[in-house]
Structures are given as C-alpha cells and as structure tokens.
Design a binder for these strands. Structure first.
Lengths: 232, 232, 232, 232
DNA sequence: TATGAATGAGATTTCATTCAT
DNA sequence: CATGAATGAAATCTCATTCAT
C-alpha cells in the first residue's frame, strides 16, 4: 500500500513525533482533533502553498496566536498532519498485518482496506498525493520514506514465503514484484481519494468501477493471481 | 500510459489550444519555446502556487508586461505549458502507436518510451504529478481527461484484439485490465521523473532498479505477460 | 562620569523606586536578582524593542504571569533595570567620592573606576547607551537626568575648589569644563562597554589602547592636566 | 568628528552604494528624497526596531509594494538612510578639509560645522546614535567603520604636523589625542541633535549653553588649546 | 500567588496584475 | 507592442498583555 502498509507493530505514535510543541499535547484531545481536521481540510483542498494558517485557525475556532503556540511554523503543522495520517493508516493496516493467510489473502484484504481507508480519509490521501510533488520535496525529505521502507520489507518477506510455498513463480524478482504490487494498490487507493484519479478510474474502468469497489478488487486479484502463480 | 498514450493521430496541437492570446502565436517560435521552458522550470521546481510569473518572465528574458500580453493569467500560462507537454508526449508515443506487433510487444515499447520520456522531460512530468493534486483540480478539470480518454480507448481496443487472438485470458475484464496496465506504466514513468517516486522505487526494488531501466522493464513485462496469458 | 558620578550619598535605592509592584519586594533577593539579570542580558543584547519579556521570564525561571505580578509592563521592568544599574554605579563611585585628593587625583580615579565598571558591567552600560536614543526618550524622560544633575553638581564644586587653589585656570568656564570632562570620561566608559565604541577606540587610538587601559588613562590625564592648569 | 570628519576627497556617493535596488535610482530625485526623509523621520523617532515600513511608505506617499521594489528589506532601507547621511556629512565636512589653517583653526571650524550639521540634521544624528547600540550591531558591522577610519587618519596627520610646527606638546600621544579630540567634538554634535544629550548639556553647562553655541565652541577651544600647547 | 494558555493587533514581505509611457 | 513601475491584498509570524485555574 502506497504510503505505509503491512507493518508488524506500531512504531509511530503521536506522542513521539517532533513536529508540534509540547503545548499541543496539553490541550483536550477533541480540540487537538478539531485543529488537525481544520488543517487537513485546508491543506487537502488548496494544497500546501495555497493553504492559509489564518483560515485553519479560524475554522478550528482558535486564535492565530494559539496556532503558533502549538506549532512553530506552517511546515510543522503540515508535518503533524502527515504524522496523524500515518498513525491512522497504521491502525487501518493493523488488520492486514495481524490476519492469518497467504500472500493472496492478504493482498485481497489490503486492497479492501486501502479502498475503505481512502474513502473514509480522502482528504488525508489527497495530502499524500501532494507530498510527492517536487515543490514539496523539502517536506518529503523531512518525513523521509520510513513508512515505505517498512512496507517494502513486509512485501519482500511475504513474497519470499509465498515463493517457498510454491505460490509464486520463482522466475519473478521479489523486489521488482513488491514495487509493482504496491503500485497497483496505491493507484487504487488514490483513485478512491482524489477527484482527479477518480475521474481517471472511471475513464478507464467505467463509471461503476468506482461505485462497486468490491468488483474492482476482484478483478485486481484475478490479475495479480494470474501474474504471480507459477505456470505448469 | 498515464498522462497521454497510444494515440492514433495528433488531435491536439499548440495552435488549437485556447490558453494563450493570439499575440503569442505571432512571436518567433524560439521565443515561444524560451518562455515555455522558463515556465516549465519554475512550475516544476516550485509547484504551481509557489511559482512566480515575474521570475518566469525574467528567466525568459521578456518583460512581465509582455507575459501578460501573451497569456491572460497565471492559470493560462500554466495551461499552455500543460498543452505543450501533451504535444511532446503525443509525439513520443507516435512510435508506439505506429509500430506493428501485438499487445505485449507494444506494452514493452510503451514502458521503454515512458522511461525515456520521463528521464528526458522530468520537469514536465513533475508538473503532471502536481496537476492531479486536489488544489489544482480546477485546472485539471479545464484540461479534463481528454488524453486519458484517448489512451483508454486504445488500451481497450488492443486488449480486445488480444483476447480475440487468444493472447489474453477471457475471464479478465477489459476495462479493469486497461486501468491496471496504465497504472503500472504510469508509476514507472513517475518513478523516473520525480525525486520522491524515484526514492520510493529504490526502497522497493533496490538502488539499481533506477540505474538499469531495461531490467525493470523486463521484470514488468514478465509480470504482465504472466498476468494476462490464459492458463492451460 | 556620564551616567552617574561623584555622588556624596546614596540617594537612590531599590526600595524607593516606583517601577515595580510591591510584590516584587516580597520575593527572595536572589530571585529578584535572577530576574533583573535575565532582563539586563535580554535588553542589552537585543535592545529595548526587540527584547521579549517572555524570553526574560523563561531565562529567569519564572512564569510570564509572575513577571506581570512584579512589573506592570515592559516599560516598568526596563525602568527597574535602569534603577538597579544606577545603584551599582553609585556604589562604584563611592570610592571616588570618599577619597581624599584634589581634582586631578579624583579624575584619575574616576577614569579608572569607569573603565573597570564598564568592563565588569558591560551589559548595563549597553543599556545606558540605548536609553539616550530618541525612540526611548519617553523612558529617558521618566528617569530624567537625576543622576546627571548630581554628578554635574560635584564637578562644579570640585572645579571651583580647584580654581580657588590655583589648580585650574580662571579663564575657563566651570560649567562648560564640567561638561567637557564628563564627556571625556563617558566616552572612555562607552568604549570599554559597547562593541561599536570599542572598535572606534581601536580605530583612533590603536588596538592596544583597549588592552592597556592604564596607559589610555595616563594619556587622558596628561591631556586634562595640560588643558586645565593655568599657564605661567 | 564622530561619524565622519575631515576627509580629503569624496569617496562615497549615493550611486556607489549597494543598499538599494537599481529601481530606486530611476525614480525622480525628489521622490527619492521624500522616501528617505520619511524613513529618516520614522527611524529617528522610533528607533530601528519600532519603526514601521508601512508607516514610512504611507508618509512618503508610496505603496508598500513600491517600497520593496526600491529596497529589498527593512535593513537595506535603513542602510540607505545611513549612506545618504554619510554623504551629507561628508559635504558638510568638505569646508573643514578644504580650508587653510593649522590644527586649532580647523578644530574650531569643525566644531562649528558639527553644531550646525547636528541642528540641521538632528534626525539623522539621532540615527547615528542608535547604530552604536548593541542590538543593532549587525547593522553597524555592515557599514563598518569606514568613515571613522578616514577621520582618524586625518586627525593623526594634523596632529603630527602641529607637533612638527611646535604647536602641540611632544609628550602627548598622537593617537590617544585624536581619540579625545573626536570624543569632544562628537559629544557636542550629539548634544545638539538628540533630546537626551541636549538635556544633559543643559544640566552640565547651563541652559544657554545650548542657545549660544558660539560661546560653547569658544570654551571648548580654550580647553583644547590649553590641553595641547606645549608649556614653556 | 503562581501559572501559562489564549489573544489579536501589527510587522515584514511576496506577487499577480494593471497601465502609463 | 513592449516595458516595468506601481499597487495592495494577503500570508506568515511575533509578542505584550490578560485571565481562568
């Protein structure tokens, strides 16, 4: 899954992040959430540069002075939003990681989770899309690719296990494969989160591909299974 | 291919677009290009919002007044850049469209062209990535998904032909398949254009996956062929 | 001496000043000093306007709320700092006032004391320099020129005594002379306290003029003696 | 003379300074002056930090945007003001440099010029006073002590010539002497420019010392002559 | 009394766009 | 046509001060 995925254990929690001042941790959780929600909405809707902290503060019902007592800068606020998203994503992926089953069963679950997560948190996903933009590379560098590294490791392990069990053709390169699989999942995720990618999905796969996520998932699993299973 | 693709004929050409004033067509082509190049560089490097058209004008060696005599607004300049990119992409894809061969041979060529195009025009590609962002959806809507529609149509035709020839399993949905295939190609393209996606590629598929595009292409083709060919 | 000088008796003491609330007198003296020290450091380093009382409070280890329970405003805190400085200066000058000797012996001592005081309390001196600034005239007016008045009176008396004793030429105006003498002492004091005036001293009198205060004092005394003694 | 003085040739001219953008040189001189005047007034009245560029722009009758098209920053505007002041001062001192006469005649002229310059340009002088403040040391460093270096060199030469002519006692150190003389002139200058130092002058030398500059000058010259002339 | 979260006016700076020359 | 000076709304961020706990 694009920005995170099959992780083994929660490695990241809001208390450990370094992007907000300690003041922020001392205010009521619902107020914290209200602020992050306002920020997510503004960042997702307008993009990092066009987003206005004043608007975020106003929508969150706090003063601009308070905003700056919680976050040292616009960048830090943005990073905190990213972090909170990572946490959510991690939790969403817990069920994939913790489930029993082989590569295919897990891939199926992962697609389902991705779709659901994208629909429920489409604004957060829109922010993920923007972070990959060149103009935000300085921010991307700050979060680095921690999540991706973790996800990739999981893919590598699952694929190797599947190979050992005769479930994946030996002549496919594990690493390249992990890249392709995550690409497929990530694009599904994007397609359920962003307006642009949703339209694109409809153009390619038809209008009801969006409205009937289950059957898109079925089709993707057919393609993947076909692509991986050894041929006689 | 993501942003454009197997097109049969040039449908789009700079003269037909509606995003620049007629004055722009009256200046020498090399001056036109200098302006577009400066715009591409600025938009790609800083993102739409952070880009400054004053800077673009300066780098292009023209006055800001002239800039506004060619383009009515920042938006229009951006749209013109997008259009010129589409033209380039179209030309790049000509060789895929015009070649003989079945689906697999064409997919192979398409991946190769995508990689090359991404490397040669990475700034343009970075702009493509940004356009899919929510904050730029009002611009994305303006160019709409004309290119994607065209590309999708080609995919659909090729896949159906391949099915008829017994080269693609009948139990795969044509439209869903076209979506997955373009996703795979698009992500490869992104990975060779943007810093962020390049790093991601390395995380998943290893450092030399980027330096050895040919073998990544080979791996992708193995996966696709496996995924599509009917099983005995 | 510029900002204070040959005073006979302590006229000014912290308890009498009007710039802090009574709560300030009730806290332990070392806490008082810690607060004033933090204020001196901040005001001296950044100047009145750029100084932040939030920073002062933090550095003093007290809350901003307490700060405002001790001092009604930034202005009052600043005035209190000035007052505490005056006290220090007064004590430093005690030894000049209380010593026996004629005008020349006292001037010599005064220069020595000024140099030492400037080096030991350079931050306080930097604040004195700033108070003379036009932007702070409303504050300067508040502390007025009490100290200067006192100092001037001493000068006048000493000079008149020296004239009576035949040690100073009768054709020099007492009041103008007191002004010139204090100017000379004050500039020496500034030159040992502020970065800017130190550099200026070096430019005029050479690098070791700063490192060898004793010989600068000797030279100044030669000049003064020459300038005041009656000619045959 | 404190911030400049007996210079031989104009070394500094507005066209050579580096603190404004070229745009500034292209606007009418009276507009340039209006802007500098507004800046001088604001900086002198409130001090560097408390001064507001918005206020300066408004008082100069230009937009804030124009302000920033002339000067890249508040700092640069300030530096430009300093430079224009240096130019004025230089011109004022031309008459001292160009005149015939020995050290004493020139010192007399210098005091007169300083007094006049201070009264005519008291706001500029107030800014000079502030630049020596510790909080503005980063600005002071930018202008360095060019002017002072030049002035000091002149003093050194004049004193040595006077010594050779038997007009100055040989047992006085040339460099230390130059420092003391400039201190005396500088303090007179300050006393006619700043509110604070004017009050101080009155406290020491009486109320009419300010209103009768000529006699203060006479007194100062008596003191200097006494202090320098060799004794029989 | 002590605390420190909250406030918001105001400061500096940027930049798309207009328009007189 | 070309130029680039002028504009001013709006953005980020600071900090003296208040006040509920």
């Amino acid at each position: 899954m694009s920005k995170a995925a099959i992780t083994t254990d929660s490695v990241y929690s809001m208390n450990e992040n370094e992007y907000h001042k300690t003041t922020f941790t001392r205010i009521p959780p619902d107020k914290q959430q209200r602020i992050l929600d306002a920020a997510i909405q503004e960042f997702a809707g307008k993009g990092y540069n066009a987003a206005s902290i004043n608007v975020i503060a106003r929508n969150a019902g706090i003063s601009i002075g308070s905003m700056y007592s919680y976050f040292a800068s616009k960048e830090d606020l943005f990073m905190s939003v990213m972090d909170s998203g990572h946490n959510l994503l991690e939790q969403a992926l817990k069920e994939v990681v913790d489930m029993p089953g082989d590569l295919y069963e897990r891939m199926d679950k992962m697609i389902e989770v991705s779709q659901r997560y994208a629909m429920e948190n489409h604004q957060l996903n829109q922010i993920y899309i923007e972070i990959s933009t060149e103009g935000l590379s300085h921010l991307a560098r700050r979060i680095s690719l921690k999540m991706e590294s973790m996800t990739a490791a999981i893919y590598h392990r699952l694929i190797d296990e599947a190979k050992a069990a005769g479930l994946v053709s030996m002549n496919l390169d594990t690493r390249a494969l992990s890249f392709f699989l995550d690409n497929l999942v990530m694009m599904v995720q994007f397609s359920y989160a962003s307006d642009y990618y949703r339209e694109r999905l409809k153009v390619y796969a038809g209008d009801n591909s969006y409205n009937d996520p289950a059957s898109l998932r079925t089709e993707l699993m057919k393609f993947i299974r076909n692509g991986l299973l050894p041929r006689a």
